[in-house]
Write a protein that binds this DNA or RNA. Structure first.
Lengths: 211, 211
DNA sequence: ACCAAGTTCCACCACATGGTGGATGTTTGT
DNA sequence: ACAAACATCCACCATGTGGTGGAACTTGGT
């Protein structure tokens, strides 16, 4: 069974191996999301994935590599590839809001980033650099859009530069997720995000969106 | 040496014991703040406090009790006792801002709450209830103040009720701390907090403060 | 000086941890 | 059918874990 599996993608290993590898990543995301990186054991992840913990190590080498694989997987699925031409304020807003909406059905994954972000304040944390990078990417993207909208719509903001405002938005974004973990459903996270971005982008001013 | 130690406070145990107990709490706060509750071992805390780990257990009984002691200690030092009559918008603003300022010199402690808050999204986390309580206390306090200011200054806000706005502020507060851990010094956390509270309380409208 | 209360450390326990090495079975192209 | 690449598990290791029990020492009041 299965006669076209070896050629439909540039692959590594066999199909069975890739499947368990994927399964491990998903269970690891849940587990890290519940008890953090340090608090999660490889054995517990392996158990939930239905394999021996040495099988897990066979695929990922060590615990840190597994963490990095989880983060990468999370990002590729929550921040789909985009063209630089696509970057309109509406696009970014929708992307962030719909991510937040989808996250409601997979709380563990969201929590993963919260815990990791908090843990990664320690300089030695293996995920520190990737997470900083992730934040910077988002910040630059948002800041650039804010700057463009400000010149296009003649918006002035004496309090914060676009970069500061973008960083503030990212911080608030994480804060909302954090809060939602402790008090599920109290805040309308997607709605608040939309409101904040709409205001920052000046989208409530009868504005042009794209070029 | 030391002849008036037994009577200056309602005490438990001897002075030496209380001293080491205090030392343990402080080291534990740092350690939990760096690697979370699950990621920190009692032995590592004890080592940093210069005692055997069984001494630590003698004082606190178990790991969870130590965590709770740390949180309690943190709160009593960051939220000093206040009289309900003291609750003016300016007082709350100053209290929060000065806490944020002081936190800059003790990053580990701030990080402690970030990690714990993130970890406590899991229902079984021992610190979940205390942290929820902590949040609720702050939210109620802020919401009540917002509500009072709204009626006093005739402020209208169709987007959020005082409770929602207060929750949003608390979430942002935590988010700023989280962000500051990953990107130290990028954001002016105390300044942003002051700005946010000033706006929420309508303090920039030439307003009355107390009664 | 006395002694109960309290403090501290040492030795130990059962168990979990991340990681290694090798043996056995499975996939895959040929 | 075959063999190389791969996948999986089992047994094992050194080390770390939270927690217990008890012996030796301090402290503080009388």
């Amino acid at each position: 069974m299965g006669d076209n599996e070896g050629t439909d993608a540039r692959t590594e290993g066999y199909a069975t191996g890739r499947a368990t590898k994927q399964s491990i990543v998903e269970r690891a995301a849940e587990a890290f999301g519940e008890r953090g990186f340090y608090g999660t054991s490889l054995r517990s992840i392996a158990r939930e994935a239905g394999v021996d913990h040495s099988t897990l190590l066979h695929h990922f080498g060590n615990k840190t590599a597994l963490l990095l694989a989880v983060i990468e997987w999370h990002d590729t699925r929550s921040l789909p590839a985009f063209d630089t031409a696509d970057i309109t304020p509406e696009f970014i807003t929708d992307a962030i809001v719909s991510t937040a909406e989808r996250n409601r059905s997979v709380p563990g994954l969201t929590q993963l980033l919260s815990i990791l972000t908090a843990e990664a304040a320690s300089p030695e944390h293996p995920a520190r650099e990737p997470l900083q990078h992730r934040h910077e990417l988002l910040t630059v993207l948002i800041a650039w859009t804010i700057g463009r909208q400000r010149t296009a719509l003649d918006i002035t903001d004496d309090l914060m530069t676009p970069e500061e405002r973008a960083a503030f938005i990212v911080a608030t974004w994480d804060g909302l997720h954090l809060y939602d973990g402790l008090h599920p459903g109290v805040l309308d996270v997607p709605g608040l995000l939309r409101g904040m971005l709409t205001e920052a982008f000046g989208l409530d001013r009868g504005a042009p969106g794209g070029s």
